[in-house]
Deep mutational scan, measured.
Amino acid sequence: LLPSFEIGAWTEDDVYCWVQQLVRKGDSSAEMSVYASLFKENNITGKRLLLLEEEDLKDMGIVSKGHIIHFKSAIEKLTHDYIN
């Protein structure tokens, strides 16, 4: 489970856990499981996660359009939940 809904306070480890949970919950393929490490390697914290754009995801090595859409949708939901 994630430490809190205060996404802005999430550490790199918290984001890593979130990506792992996202991959487990989704209908995503096994190749998506490597993405948790990509987020950690790129020092993505909660604040940075909320700022990620499609180009950032591509720069991190996420090239599948479907996977990018999956992440963007999940990040938008997080942003919405965080604001409300």
Rank of each mutant, 00 (worst) to 15 (best):
E31T: 07
H67I: 08
L51E: 15
Y82W: 08
L52P: 05
Y35F: 05
P3E: 15
Y35L: 04
S64A: 09
T45E: 05
H67D: 12
T45D: 14
I7Y: 00
S64K: 13
Q21Y: 03
N43L: 06
I69F: 09
F39C: 00
I62M: 05
I68K: 06
K77V: 04
L22V: 09
S29Y: 13
G26C: 13
L49I: 02
D81M: 08
I83P: 13
E55N: 06
A30R: 08
F71W: 02
Y16N: 06
F5W: 15
F71N: 02
V15T: 06
M32K: 07
K72C: 06
T45H: 00
S28V: 11
S37P: 12
G66K: 15
S33A: 12
A30M: 11
G61W: 05
V19L: 07
M32F: 12
S33V: 07
L38V: 06
K58I: 10
R24N: 14
L57V: 00
L1N: 15
D59L: 09
D81L: 08
W10P: 07
L57Q: 10
C17N: 12
S29K: 10
F71M: 14
A9R: 12
I68T: 05
I62Q: 07
P3A: 10
A9W: 07
L51M: 14
V19T: 03
D14M: 00
D56E: 04
D81T: 12
C17K: 07
R48G: 03
T79G: 10
S73H: 15
E54R: 04
N84T: 12
I83V: 12
V19K: 13
A30F: 10
D14A: 02
S73K: 15
G8L: 13
W10M: 02
I44C: 05
Q20E: 15
G46C: 00
L78P: 06
S73T: 13
I68E: 02
A36V: 05
T45K: 06
A9V: 06
N84W: 09
E53P: 04
L49M: 06
V19H: 00
E6W: 04
N43D: 02
L22F: 09
F71Y: 03
Q20P: 00
Y16L: 07
K58L: 05
H80V: 10
K58R: 14
L49D: 05
F5G: 15
Y16D: 09
K72T: 09
I62K: 00
L57F: 11
C17R: 14
K72V: 07
I75C: 00
E55S: 10
K72A: 05
S37G: 10
E54C: 00
S33P: 02
I69H: 13
P3W: 04
A74H: 09
I44S: 00
E53D: 15
R24V: 13
Q20Y: 04
E31N: 08
E53L: 03
I44D: 06
A9E: 15
H70F: 15
L1Q: 15
L78H: 05
E53Y: 01
N43T: 01
L22A: 10
I68G: 04
G61P: 05
D81H: 08
G61H: 05
I75H: 00
I44A: 06
H80G: 10
D81V: 08
L49H: 01
L2C: 14
V63W: 10
F5S: 14
I62W: 00
Y35V: 04
M32P: 01
F5Q: 13
E41R: 11
I68H: 01
L1C: 11
T45P: 01
G26R: 08
K40D: 03
E54F: 05
L38K: 15
S64M: 00
I69L: 14
G26L: 14
L1D: 15
H80T: 12
S4A: 09
L1R: 11
